[in-house]
Nucleic acid binder design. Structure first.
Lengths: 166, 166
DNA sequence: ATAAGGGTTCCCATCATGGGAAGGTCAAGA
DNA sequence: TCTTGACCTTCCCATGATGGGAACCCTTAT
């Protein structure tokens, strides 16, 4: 490879379909900051460099970055993506290995969804009694001050009895 | 206050219904670490101290910590809780001011829920074709490599055309 | 030659939380 | 009284994914 020739290095590499980090960022939707970060944490291999130290990305790199972005859009963590990338590039992988990663993540997502929905329910319940006016009486604060979040959830055992303040 | 008497300081303060940080943590469900943290970021006022420097919490403090924990359980951020605490202790607050904080948070929660559900949908869609066996063919990876996340969502404009790798 | 618009590294911040070290304090038992 | 273990204190560091910004270098067009 003649990446280090004395004239027009970038032009040479562009003819080889390589791109700067800014271009890679623009086409993949992964910010340049994050591309460097992914390299630092070894999610991707260190990019080739021009003589001046500029990172270069070829179509295979670009494709990998898109893969990463899509997995991130689905909420996969970096560690999960590391696993998926390994499987992606392993021609002998078993379908069920990939499925396992995806399934685990799906479970996590469903748990997260349930958690948020229970927050929403509790908050809506709290908002029901709210007069939404200029009066100081407020069932939302009352709820937070006394109960509210435990619509039937975990009860922290109270070892001491305290007098109420509000 | 005789907190600094030479004998049995903690016993004296316990008679005044004060508790150590560990007890406060146990009864409120807020960890001691977090109680100190909340003090440092000025969410709560600096606690009184014994002569030896131990923090002391009276029932009003305990009640406030419970308020904070309940709000956290509902997903309120520290800044939102700062606002709610201010309103809670402001006798002249307007109901609608509290409502505004809660409403904004509810909107954020609903957005978060929608986001997670779209992830779940996309992932389920991807999992549909999976054979879950020992064969290397895998529609999940194929989906991540080509499309998948854009069930009809945002399309990043592609300025360059790259040949496919996979 | 100079300016604009890249690129590079390095450090810091977020948000809420916890881990752990080093050292001081309290209560109970020998 | 001395020891022991459980508690407290402060301080520093780490998380995960991301962005901001400084200080400086490279390329290209005017």
């Amino acid at each position: 490879m003649d990446l280090h020739s004395h004239d027009g290095k970038l032009i040479n590499v562009r003819m080889r379909h390589s791109h700067t980090i800014g271009e890679a960022a623009a086409t993949t939707g992964v910010s340049a900051k994050m591309i460097r970060h992914y390299e630092k944490i070894r999610l991707i291999m260190p990019a080739e460099r021009t003589g001046a130290g500029y990172r270069l990305y070829d179509p295979a790199d670009i494709h990998k970055l898109r893969f990463i972005r899509r997995a991130r859009n689905l909420g996969f963590s970096i560690d999960e993506i590391k696993e998926l990338l390994g499987l992606w590039q392993d021609e002998t992988r078993a379908s069920k290995d990939v499925r396992h990663v995806a399934d685990s993540h799906l479970v996590a997502l469903r748990n997260k969804a349930a958690e948020i929905h229970s927050m929403i329910d509790a908050l809506e319940h709290l908002l029901e009694g709210c007069t939404n006016d200029d009066r100081p009486d407020c069932p939302i604060l009352k709820g937070l001050a006394s109960d509210a979040t435990s619509t039937r959830s975990k009860n922290v055992g109270h070892k001491f009895g305290y007098e109420r303040i509000c």
